[in-house]
Write a protein that binds this DNA or RNA. Structure first.
Lengths: 249, 249
DNA sequence: TGCACAAAAAATGAATGCAAAATAGCCGTC
DNA sequence: GACGGCTATTTTGCATTCATTTTTTGTGCA
C-alpha cells in the first residue's frame, strides 16, 4: 500500500522559463548554470512528487541537453539539500519528514533572528519606512481576508529585513533554506489558520517596533519566537492537513 | 606587479587521506563523493593559494581519475562557496576580502547563537558536564599559554554546543561555513592576541553559566557577542598581520 | 627593444561511448 | 496462484572524445 509514493514516472511538463537569480553563483552564462537554475525552480515548484526518482534520461530529453551538465546540476542540488543521490540508484526528490521541517524552520528562525540583529545596525530610515508600508499593505490583506496577498506581503517584509542586514552571505543562505521549505509549501499547500493570523499581526507590530528602536537583541528574540510560532502552525497543519475541507462522510 | 597572486601552478602534493565525513550527504561510496571529500579537505587546508586557478588536468592526474567526476566535485565546491567558477576560465579558489570575512563571521555568530538557544532546550546535564570538562581543559591551556591546545579545546566546546542543539541541518550548515573560514585561518595563520585571551575566557564563563541555567535568549546574546569579538580580533589581525614578529629595521 | 597581431597550444564545456549495477520481465517450481 | 531464481533491458557512473574558447608563444614591424 505504498502507492502514495510513486516509484517512477515524472510528470513531464516543460519547466518554466528561468525565473530569478536567487543563488550566490550566478552562472547563467554556462549551459550547466542555466540547467541548474531551471532544475532548481522545477524542483522547488514541486513538479516532481516527494521521494520520486529524478530520471536523467527524461530530464535530458525535456531540457534538450546531454547527461553531463544535467548530472552536474543534480550534484549541486543534492549539496543544497533539495534532492538526494543514492549510489547507483539515481536522484530522488528529498523527502522531508516532520523532524526535517522542524529543523529547517529552526534554522530559518536563526537566520532571520540574525538578520534582524544585523539590520538594526545598518538599516536606514527609508528602509524602515518601506517596511512599514509593506506592513500596512499586509494589514489591508489581513482585513480583507486575502490570504494570498497577505502571504506575499509577509514574505516581502521578511526579505526586506534580510536585505537590510547587508550581508550577502546571509542572504544566500537564507534563500537556500527558504527554497527547501517552499518546496514543501508548494506541495502541501499551506493554509494559515485564521486564529494564527491575529497573533502573527501582533508579532509583526512588535517586530516593527523593535526595528524602529534599533533594538537588535530584542528584535532577535521576537523574530525567533515569531518563526517558532510559524513552525508550530506549519507542523500542526501537516499533522492534520484538512482544516477547512473536511472529508465527505 | 601581481606576482603575489600566482596565476597558475598548484603545488602538487598528494592530498591527505579522506578525513571525516563532516558533510550532509555522505556519498563516500561513489567515486565522485570520494573526490568531493578529498578535494574539499585539500582546498580547506589551504593547499592551493588564494585566487589561484584549480587546474583540472593536474588534479585529475594527482587523483588518478578522469575529468568528469572531478568537474562534478568542483561544481559542488563552488556551490559551497569554497571556489568560484569563471565561465570558460576554470575554477579559482575563492578569494575572501575583509568584507567577506566579516559576513562569514556574522553568519557563524548567528548560527552559534541559534545553536545556543536550541541547546538550552535540549541539552542534558551530562552534556553540560562534558562541556565544563572541556572548559577546564581549555583553562589549563590558557594558563600554560598553549595556544594550540587552547584553540582546539575552544573549537570542541563550540562544536559541542552545536551538537547539543540536536539539529542536523544546523550542524551541516555550521560545518560548511566553518570550512570556509578555516580555509582562511590555515593560510593566514591566525594568532590570537594575548589580551583577547582573558576576555575570551570570561566570555566562556558567561556562556557556561547561561547554559547551566538554560537561559536560551541570554545565551544567544552572549554567543553572538562572543563571536563578534572573535570577528573583531580576526579582522584586526588581518589588517596588521604581524604582531609578534615585527619587521626588521 | 617594445608592441601588435596571428597561429599554435592548452584548457574548458559539453556530448558520446562503454562497463557495471540495478530494475524489470520471464519462466520454472512449489 | 504465489514465490524464487535467471536473463534481458534499462539506468547509472565514469572515461573518452569533440568543439570552442582562452592562453601562450612566436613572429613581424615600428
Amino acid at each position: 500500500m505504498k502507492s502514495t509514493i510513486p516509484e517512477t514516472g515524472v510528470p513531464i511538463t516543460p519547466p518554466t522559463g528561468n525565473g530569478g537569480d536567487r543563488q550566490e553563483n550566478r552562472q547563467e552564462a554556462s549551459l550547466h548554470g542555466e540547467i541548474l537554475l531551471r532544475l532548481r525552480d522545477y524542483v522547488v515548484e514541486g513538479n516532481i512528487p516527494e521521494g520520486a526518482r529524478v530520471p536523467e534520461r527524461q530530464l535530458c530529453e525535456m531540457l534538450g541537453i546531454s547527461r553531463t551538465p544535467l548530472r552536474e546540476a543534480l550534484k549541486v542540488l543534492a549539496a543544497e539539500g533539495l534532492i538526494e543521490l543514492l549510489p547507483n540508484r539515481g536522484a530522488r526528490v528529498r523527502q522531508l519528514g516532520q523532524r526535517d521541517l522542524e529543523e529547517l524552520f529552526d534554522v530559518m528562525a536563526g537566520l532571520e533572528s540574525l538578520a534582524g540583529r544585523l539590520a538594526c545596525e545598518a538599516i536606514t530610515d527609508a528602509e524602515i519606512t518601506a517596511i512599514e508600508q509593506l506592513h500596512y499593505e499586509m494589514y489591508g490583506h489581513y482585513l480583507h481576508r486575502d490570504m494570498h496577498g497577505y502571504f506575499q506581503a509577509n514574505q516581502r517584509i521578511h526579505e526586506s529585513i534580510v536585505a537590510s542586514a547587508r550581508n550577502e552571505t546571509l542572504k544566500t543562505a537564507y534563500a537556500n533554506f527558504a527554497g527547501r521549505i517552499r518546496r514543501v509549501r508548494y506541495s502541501a499547500n499551506f493554509a494559515r489558520k485564521r486564529q494564527r493570523w491575529a497573533e502573527a499581526m501582533r508579532e509583526h507590530e512588535a517586530i516593527l517596533d523593535a526595528l524602529r528602536r534599533r533594538a537588535g537583541s530584542e528584535l532577535s528574540d521576537i523574530l525567533f519566537q515569531h518563526l517558532r510560532n510559524k513552525r508550530a502552525a506549519a507542523i500542526e497543519h501537516l499533522t492534520e492537513p484538512q482544516e477547512s475541507v473536511p472529508a465527505s462522510p
